[in-house]
Simulated scan of single mutants.
Amino acid sequence: MSALKSTVWVTVILFLLPYLNIAQESKNQLFYIHEDRVKPSMIQEYEQISKEFKEACTKHNLQGLSWEVASTSTGRYLNISPLTNMAELDKNVMAPLAEKMGDEAFKDMFKRFNRCYDKHGDYLVYLNEELTYMPEGISTTTEGQNYRKWHFLHVTPDNIQDLKEKLKELKALFTRKGSKEYYRVYHNGFGTMGDYYVAVLSAIDEEDYAKKSKANQVLLGEEGKKVFDDVFKYVYKYEVESGSMHPELSYSPK
């Protein structure tokens, strides 16, 4: 039995090792994401309940939790909260809110949420400063630029390091050329199947994004095309999502 326990713990440690290594790097901010895949017919209702939930948090001065909200054109709503470490996941930060609202009212609000989607879940991602290109300072909130474009680069475990090196080369090229198209790079963490990097770009709207993208393509020229080709050699699946941030649904305690 003791041998079996040892084997199990070794397996668990080996499984968690990539995430522990990522977490130990000081340049990687950890984020907890709760994702709701909202039915098209329930988007308006979902956003109304989200506003009511934010109002309840503000009224009762919920502490210990803040979040930003993003949504994609495919109905994915991402509630994004920064974490200092994974131990914060053990805290029941909603307990004081449930007590102040009343248990029945609190549960009723989440019952209304649940009618808006058939699938939802939780996972972690890490903001990787080493791969992020924001020369004027890294920030997840880009004032006046709530439009978002997510570029997902799915990668197999044996190609992760090679892809990372190519993303470093890409950042170096953007830096050397003085590109005005800034981006943040995240890596998946605990709670997801498969590995990916995602580059997130901000703009005023779709037109502004297209204008920046075209100007950047011209700026980088053939050298940029070569680096991007090298990046995609290690990507087995590429996905793009468009959407926006929702400051009106975001919450930060006073």
Rank of each mutant, 00 (worst) to 15 (best):
residue 5 K to M: 09
residue 6 S to T: 14
residue 7 T to A: 12
residue 12 V to R: 09
residue 14 L to Q: 04
residue 20 L to T: 03
residue 22 I to H: 11
residue 35 E to L: 14
residue 36 D to N: 12
residue 37 R to G: 00
residue 41 S to E: 15
residue 42 M to Q: 15
residue 46 Y to R: 04
residue 48 Q to A: 14
residue 49 I to Q: 10
residue 54 K to G: 01
residue 65 L to G: 01
residue 68 E to K: 05
residue 68 E to L: 08
residue 73 S to R: 06
residue 77 Y to P: 10
residue 81 S to E: 06
residue 83 L to I: 11
residue 85 N to P: 06
residue 94 M to V: 11
residue 96 P to F: 11
residue 100 K to Y: 06
residue 103 D to G: 03
residue 104 E to A: 08
residue 111 K to I: 11
residue 111 K to N: 05
residue 114 N to G: 09
residue 119 K to S: 07
residue 119 K to M: 08
residue 131 L to R: 00
residue 133 Y to G: 00
residue 146 N to L: 12
residue 147 Y to L: 12
residue 147 Y to P: 04
residue 148 R to F: 02
residue 149 K to A: 02
residue 166 K to V: 05
residue 167 L to P: 00
residue 170 L to E: 00
residue 171 K to R: 05
residue 172 A to Q: 06
residue 179 S to H: 12
residue 180 K to M: 10
residue 182 Y to K: 04
residue 187 H to S: 10
residue 204 I to H: 06
residue 204 I to G: 02
residue 207 E to K: 15
residue 207 E to V: 13
residue 219 L to R: 02
residue 229 D to V: 05
residue 233 K to N: 12
residue 240 V to P: 04
residue 242 S to V: 14
residue 244 S to A: 05
residue 245 M to G: 00
residue 249 L to K: 07
residue 250 S to H: 04
residue 253 P to T: 06
residue 254 K to S: 06
